[in-house]
Every structure is written in structure tokens, then in C-alpha cells.
């Protein structure tokens, strides 16, 4: 993408004002890694949003609040009670990219292969958007369509709120790639709430092998009320085929990708259950 101008606003209000005035000729820049690959004939003004105090991770009540401009490497290194975000962040791209790429940049415009939307959907995260004042949105609402729709008027994503997992809650995520730094072939994530070995609630999401990250509700339905055992997980994972439109690619058929997703879901569920029963930190 061609940049005709580069500005560094000092406050959130200034950044929003600049983006509102620029309209389609403005582009928020955090890590900026994706901008190098975006096609666009019209040059844009880059609005640097990394100097607005939006890089932090804090535990606040029942949530971990992650500033939108926090690099993935900080999320990967952070440790809090029953923290689960580090695993997926470690699997995203390479060390050098994780050092600059931000959580906000990863989800403000969702590419089909993005991993974080999958994890945030399963985690029941909340997204904080600044439009003069801050408002919150559920991950279900935020990822119901391309989130870039929410930022056309200059509004900005400021934070991601991840619920602190309670005891008996467990989380697991699996990303399948051909090599360590490659884009995902399939990413799945699962959140389970167990009570006396029975699944009380479940959120399962997938991305990359489907057109857009989404929850797999038939898989969730096949889990709730059942025992948290492998046979149940297998049966639930088998519902993935009907839950989404699986798309082949990189020499793999749609059927192969679906099978890949099924075994990944099984794996994620096993991990989530192990976590819920009390994982070794």
C-alpha cells in the first residue's frame, strides 16, 4: 500500500479526528506488517496508533484487559492466573513479527487465516471500541462479519477483554500448519466448563479452513450435558462437518481439511478438559 503521509497523533481523540477527516484516505497503523501487502492504488495517510498508551496487559476484576496495540510477543510472555492466551500467540508467525504485530491489528481487519478471532470467539472475549467514548461488544457480535466495518468512521479498537477462567473452566487451542511460521491450515479453540465431570457449557470455534472464523454450534450442542470423555469429544467433533463450510486448499481437498479440523477439535477438547481438571502450570 502506498503511503503519501505519515502522522503520529498524541491522543486517542486526535487519532479518531484525523481518521474521520481522512475517510478512505486514512489507514490506522499499529505494527504495520499487513500494510506492506495490501493492494490499493490510492495512496493513504498512515495514522500511527502505537503511541496512544494502548500497549498493556492488566487484570481488572474478572477480565484480563489487553490494550489493542499490545504486541503478540507481550501476550505470549505474560503470565496471569489460568492464563491461556500465550499458547496461540507463540504459534503465530515468527519472533520478529510477534514483536511488532499487535492484537488489535490482528483483529481490526480479519484475514481468513487469522488465529486470534478463533480464540477470542471461544473465550467469549469482549472488544472495546472508541467512538468519542468507549463501548463494549461481545466477540460474537464483533466477528459476525468483517470487523473493518466498525472502523470506517474513524472509530478505533482500544482493548480486548479476556474473561479470567474460573476453576473447572478449561481452554484449549490447536493450530495446524505445514511448518512453524506458515499460515494456518486450520485453527480451532474450545472452552469447556465442567461440573463433576459433566460439561456444563462449551464454546468451540474454528477458522482458516472456512471462509470466516466462526463458532461451531452443532459441536457445542453435542457436548453440553454429556460427560467430558474422549468418546463424547469424538462424537462432537464429528458434528464439525455440518457446522461450517470447509474449504480445501494447498493441495488438500475440502474433505481432508474437514477431517483435519475434526481431529484438531478432538485435541482442543482434550486439552480444555485437562486444563479444567487442573493443568500443571
Amino acid at each position: 500500500m502506498k503511503l503519501s503521509e505519515f502522522i503520529r497523533p498524541a491522543t486517542l481523540a486526535e487519532a479518531r479526528k484525523a481518521l474521520r477527516a481522512l475517510g478512505p484516505k486514512g489507514m490506522p497503523l499499529a505494527g504495520g506488517t499487513a500494510l506492506h501487502f495490501m493492494q490499493g492504488k490510492t495512496p493513504v495517510t498512515a495514522v500511527d496508533v502505537t503511541r496512544l498508551g494502548l500497549s498493556y496487559i492488566r487484570q481488572k476484576g474478572n477480565y484480563f484487559v489487553i490494550g489493542a496495540a499490545t504486541p503478540l510477543s507481550d501476550i505470549q510472555r505474560y503470565r496471569g492466573p489460568r492464563w491461556a492466551m500465550h499458547e496461540i500467540c507463540r504459534r503465530i508467525s515468527t519472533h520478529q513479527i510477534r514483536n511488532v504485530s499487535t492484537i488489535g491489528g490482528n483483529i481490526a481487519r480479519v484475514f481468513p487465516w487469522a488465529d486470534l478471532p478463533v480464540v477470542l470467539l471461544a473465550m467469549d472475549a469482549r472488544l472495546v471500541i472508541y467512538s468519542g467514548k468507549e463501548k463494549e461488544m461481545t466477540a460474537d457480535e464483533y466477528f459476525s462479519a468483517q470487523p473493518a466495518r466498525l472502523f470506517r468512521g474513524g472509530d478505533l479498537l482500544t482493548a480486548v477483554k479476556i474473561p479470567v477462567l474460573k476453576a473447572h473452566h478449561g481452554f484449549g487451542s490447536v493450530k495446524v500448519t505445514r511448518n512453524a511460521a506458515a499460515f494456518s491450515l486450520a485453527t480451532v479453540a474450545a472452552l469447556l466448563e465442567l461440573k463433576d465431570g459433566v460439561i456444563k457449557a462449551a464454546r468451540v470455534a474454528a477458522g482458516s479452513a472456512i471462509p470466516f472464523p466462526q463458532r461451531l454450534k452443532p459441536v457445542e450442542a453435542a457436548l453440553v450435558g454429556k460427560e467430558a470423555v474422549t468418546a463424547v469429544f469424538k462424537e462432537a467433533a464429528a458434528a464439525a462437518g455440518a457446522a461450517a463450510k470447509w474449504v480445501g486448499g494447498e493441495g488438500m481437498s475440502a474433505d481432508y481439511i474437514r477431517q483435519l479440523a475434526e481431529v484438531s477439535i478432538l485435541d482442543a477438547l482434550e486439552r480444555a478438559a485437562e486444563f479444567a481438571r487442573g493443568r500443571a502450570e
Partner: peptide, 14 residues
């Protein structure tokens, strides 16, 4: 922190 200089605009280094 290690970063790729090819994916960083010079202006980001301010």
C-alpha cells in the same frame, strides 16, 4: 527487540 527492517516503515522508528 528483533524486528524485520523490511516490514517496518522508517517513520515507525521515530
Amino acid at each position: 527487540r528483533a524486528t524485520y527492517a523490511c516490514l517496518l516503515y522508517a517513520m515507525q522508528a521515530e
